[in-house]
């Protein structure tokens, strides 16, 4: 039961991960700072998914990366590209619409159940 629930939850959240990551990349972030940002907003993220995801987003030209070697430790920074901003805005609208629709749907179901 709980195993099924957790696998369903993971599935439900999988699609939102890209959106969550894109939303934090208007300012340049490196891997671990991104993890901390997401964790601060209670977005649980599997690190073995996050780092490959960043690379994929770069390949899809949604983000651009650069190495910063000025500090003691070299860090790779990621930031949204112009194309990335455009896609992010559209994806955000898409998400908002989906949640509205789903909210109405679930609200209706609740009323049905109470009747």
């Amino acid at each position: 039961m709980s195993k099924l629930l957790s696998s369903l939850t993971i599935e439900l959240r999988r699609g939102t991960l890209t959106l969550a990551v894109l939303s934090q990349l208007r300012t340049p972030q490196y891997g671990y700072s991104l993890v901390q940002l997401l964790e601060k907003s209670n977005v649980a993220i599997d690190q073995s998914t996050l780092y490959p995801l960043l690379r994929r987003l770069e390949k899809q030209e949604l983000v651009v990366s650069s190495w910063d070697t000025s500090e003691s430790r070299p860090r790779k920074y990621y930031v949204l590209s112009e194309y990335g901003i455009e896609i992010f805005e559209k994806l955000k609208e898409e998400w908002e619409q989906t949640t509205r629709e789903l909210y109405t749907l679930l609200k209706g179901e609740e009323e049905n159940a109470s009747n």
Binding site: Y30, G31, Y32, Y51, R55, R73, P74, R75, K76
Partner: peptide, 13 residues
């Protein structure tokens, strides 16, 4: 590239 990024990430943690 990936090795470098992983190392800096792990050390960040």
């Amino acid at each position: 590239d990936i090795a470098l990024e992983l190392r800096s990430t792990i050390e960040d943690m």
